[in-house]
Amino acid sequence: PVYLSVKADNSMFIGNDPVTDETMITALNALTEGKKDTTIFFRADKTVDYETLMKVMDTLHQAGYLKIGLVG
């Protein structure tokens, strides 16, 4: 499974590897070998604001990742 996490300080990680807004999709493409039907499990600290969550989800959708599971 692929886990994308947003921490309380808005830092992002794919698994244990830090990513930025600019590198997130490139890292996901490498990890999933470009398979856009891969489910991305998205988790965020409860203090992360809604705007940040939606920005990340919008970026995922624009890149073609449509299977996003929200996890606690």
Rank of each mutant, 00 (worst) to 15 (best):
R43K: 11
V19A: 02
L66A: 06
T52W: 14
V6H: 02
L28T: 01
G72D: 12
F42I: 15
T47C: 14
I68P: 01
P1A: 11
L66K: 10
K7H: 14
N10F: 10
P1C: 13
E22F: 07
L31D: 01
M57D: 01
T47H: 13
G64N: 02
K67W: 09
E33W: 07
L66T: 14
T47I: 06
K46R: 10
L4Y: 01
E22C: 05
M24N: 00
H61Q: 10
A8I: 05
G72Y: 07
K36W: 05
D17Y: 14
K36G: 04
T52I: 14
G15F: 07
I14L: 14
I14V: 13
M12I: 14
V19G: 01
K46F: 09
T23H: 06
Y65D: 00
A30R: 13
D21W: 15
K7D: 07
E33A: 12
V19T: 05
V56M: 08
T23S: 10
V71E: 10
G69M: 15
F13M: 09
Y3K: 03
A30S: 09
L28V: 04
G69S: 15
M12H: 02
A44L: 10
D49A: 15
I40L: 04
A30E: 10
K36P: 05
T52R: 13
L53E: 02
D45V: 03
T39W: 15
H61D: 03
I14W: 04
S11M: 11
D9Y: 07
I14A: 03
T39R: 11
S5K: 07
Y50F: 11
L66S: 10
M57T: 04
Y65K: 00
L4W: 02
G15A: 05
L31K: 09
P18A: 10
T38K: 06
G15K: 03
T52N: 06
I40H: 00
M12P: 01
R43D: 09
G69T: 15
V19Y: 04
F41D: 03
H61A: 12
A27P: 01
L53S: 03
N29H: 10
V71R: 05
M57H: 04
T23G: 07
I25P: 02
E22I: 09
V2T: 02
I68Y: 04
K36R: 11
D37W: 06
I25V: 10
P1T: 11
G15R: 03
V56K: 04
G69W: 15
Y3D: 03
Y65Q: 00
V48C: 06
L4E: 00
M57V: 10
D58I: 12
F42D: 00
T52F: 15
H61T: 11
D21R: 14
N10H: 12
L31C: 06
T38P: 04
Q62M: 12
D49P: 15
I40F: 01
T52V: 14
T20P: 03
T32H: 03
I14S: 01
D21I: 15
M54L: 11
T59G: 05
T20D: 09
I68V: 13
G34S: 06
S11N: 08
D58F: 12
K35R: 13
T26E: 14
V2W: 03
K35S: 07
G72N: 12
T52P: 02
G64M: 02
K67L: 09
T38D: 03
I14D: 01
G69Q: 15
I68H: 03
N29A: 07
D58K: 14
M57P: 00
K36D: 03
T39F: 15
A44Q: 04
M12C: 04
K55F: 07
T52L: 13
M24I: 12
G69R: 15
V48R: 02
L60N: 00
S5Y: 15
F13D: 02
I25N: 02
E51V: 12
V71G: 07
G64T: 00
M54I: 11
G69L: 15
K7M: 14
Y65G: 00
T20A: 04
D37L: 05
N16Q: 09
V71A: 08
S11C: 10
S11Y: 06
V71K: 06
H61M: 13
L53C: 10
L53G: 01
D45N: 05
K35C: 07
Y50K: 12
L70T: 10
G34N: 09
L70N: 06
L28K: 00
T38C: 08
M12G: 01
M12E: 01
F13H: 05
V71Y: 07
V71Q: 09
K7Q: 09
T59F: 09
V19R: 01
G69F: 15
L31E: 03
I68L: 06
L60Q: 00
M24E: 00
T47R: 11
M12F: 06
N29P: 01
V56F: 06
I14C: 03
V6M: 13
N16T: 10
A44I: 13
Y50M: 13
L70D: 05
G72H: 11
D17L: 14
S5E: 12
A44T: 08
M12Y: 13
V48D: 03
D21K: 13
G64K: 02
Y65R: 00
L31W: 08
D9P: 10
T32Y: 04
G69Y: 15
K67N: 14
